[in-house]
Amino acid sequence: MDIIELKKRLTEALSEKILELAQLGKGRVLSVWVEAKHINEVALLLRNESYLGFSVLENFFVAQLDSAFLLSYYLRAPKTGMELILRASIVPPNPEGLAKAPSIREVWPMAEHQERESAELFGIIFYLGLSPADKKEIKHSFLPPGWQGFPFRKEYKFPESFSGIQHQRDGL
C-alpha cells in the first residue's frame, strides 16, 4: 500500500470527520486532523479495520500552540509498514484551568503512561467514556507532591521557593 492509496482509503472511511489531511515529512507521512471528541471513534476504526490495521501507537505527545494544546498520535501498521499521524487540538477554558481530552488508553494501552505524564506537565485531564468525569485534581507521580501549576505551559511562572528551598542561586 502506498501513501496515495492510504489517503483514498482514509477519505472513504472517515469522510466527514476529517478536518485536514496533509502530507508531512517530504510527503512520506500522512497527517489526519480530527476533532478531539471524535478521537476514540477514529482510533477504533484505524486499529480494527483490516485494510488500515494501525495497531501500534509508537509515540504520543502534546505541544502548546498559543492557547491550544495539540495532541499528536504517531501510529504504525505492522503489516503494511505505513505510518500515520493522528492529530487533534483542545483549548483549556482559561489559561490556568484544566483542559479536557478523551483518553485513548482503551484503544492503545501503551498510551497510558504518556497520558499521565502529559496530564501532569500540561494540566490536561484525560477522561474515559463519553463525557469528562468530575475530576478536579491530577495525581502527581512525576512532580513532587504538592507542586503547584503545570510546568510545560507557556504561561507557567517558576516558583519562588519549594518546600523551604529558595529557587535562586546564592549570590545572585
Binding site: 512532580l143 510546568p151 517558576f158 516558583p159 528551598i165 529558595q166 529557587h167 535562586q168 542561586r169 546564592d170
Partner: peptide, 16 residues
C-alpha cells in the same frame, strides 16, 4: 539547569 532555566533543579545542594 540554573534557576531561570529549570523549574525543578535545586540551585545548589548547600540549600539542603
Amino acid at each position: 539547569f540554573s534557576s531561570d532555566i529549570s523549574y525543578s533543579v535545586v540551585p545548589g545542594i548547600n540549600k539542603i
